[in-house]
Design a protein around this nucleic acid. Sequence first.
RNA 1: GCCGUCGUAGCUCAGUAGGUAGAGCGUCCGCCUGUUAAGCGGAAGGUCAACGGUUCGAGCCCGUUCGACGGCGCCA
Length: 429
Amino acid sequence: MQSIAKVLSGDSLGQPVGVHGWIYRTRSSGGIVFVVVRDSTGIIQTTMRKGVVSDAEFELASSAGIESAVEVEGTLAEDKRAPGGLEIRASKFSLVAPSEPFPITEYQSTELLLDQRHLWIRSREQTAVTRIKAAMLRGGREWFQENDYVEVTPPMITGVAPEDSTTLFQIKYFDRIAYLSQSAQFYLESLIYSCERVWALTPSFRAEKSRTPRHLAEYWHLEMEAAWIDNDGNMKVQEELVTAMIGRAAVDCPAELKLLGRDAADLGRIAPPFDRMSYEEAMASLQKSGFDTSWGSDLGAVEERALTKERDTPLFVVNYPKELKPFYMKENPDDHRTYKNSDLLAPEGYGEIIGGSERETDNSLLVDRLREIGESLDNYQWYLDLRKYGSVPHSGFGLGLERMVTWVCKLEHIRDATPFPRTVARVYP
RNA sequence: GCCGUCGUAGCUCAGUAGGUAGAGCGUCCGCCUGUUAAGCGGAAGGUCAACGGUUCGAGCCCGUUCGACGGCGCCA
């Protein structure tokens, strides 16, 4: 047996080949049956003729339904009438396992596809997304390895909750309460004092009742933290990493990208340095476009879309007002109203995929800010400890993997960037 | 949390003025030796989301509940 991709390469033209997979489509016309077979690498038409295969095999082939598991052996032939120009003229057909009528047909609704997700992930589109996502992760892992980052394994169960813990999933943890992690950042920050440069890929959980095309309740969070680098260095890491991830997908998955309407060549234009714009400049630009917004307003979905819609490469927005961002960021010495931070916005209107910053290194400043926002210091004691024993400048960021996949794969909704999306309305299948 | 749309056959949908429930696809049976999500003929298939109300009569009008989807906010 060979992969369908291998057979489609045409190397075996005129020679015996065999494939196994699942029936993608069947059509029959009297004494001939067309069975289009799908495997993980592609689809190919096979033809069964009465008299060439046995009557029993012919009967099986003509009655087998979509998604039946089959094996076909025959001769590879060129034929203009075949989709793709190549077909296997079968000498042998066997049914590995029949399929009941497949619930997903040519007529589909969003609801059906989500209810039948365990079956819909067999689709060519979902398969392409899965492979592209894997390639992006491969590219990221390669980049981290080449740049001396240590992959670490932070916990996903935490005992600490901020005062406003409404966005945390609570779990029963033996005889007390614990929470599912929203971010591994504090754990990564702890690890830089030994490994200096660390990264982790973990699930993050958000109990926000968000109902948008860019939110999941569970998503894969790619986070990095490094000692001795400031926010400019942090942004350089981000643009190089993003470029490496996209580059790997473009090289390894051009066909999958094309299937999704994304030209791999266009992705090749994405290279450091990415454009940079301050929050203040972003505000001015939005006001010029007629937005009723001013200093202190956050960039919402509409604003991010406006800023990135006409772009085909990512955009950094830097130096947000402090009140819009969390307490652990480092104040901008050039403008005390803002932090040394950045959000990376994906182009084409997709919006934020990374949030990052230089971290505050001064223990007393952190304590002040925590008091200001009414947080109990007890919950942060171990985090504050990190500033007591050789505090060093450091920076880091978190990348929402599915958000990046949504952009790279030109998806309309983030739930298609993961095989089994978890949203406020769905935990099945 | 807020705003909006929709629940009718396995799937996608139509259902006019309130008067005995329809189509295409799928399934099953038959025909067809080059189909491209093939074509032709036939058959089976329904608690119209649930509950309550109005009416001689409700898929349709009113109310409540449940579910799903679209968008905003929050965020990656």
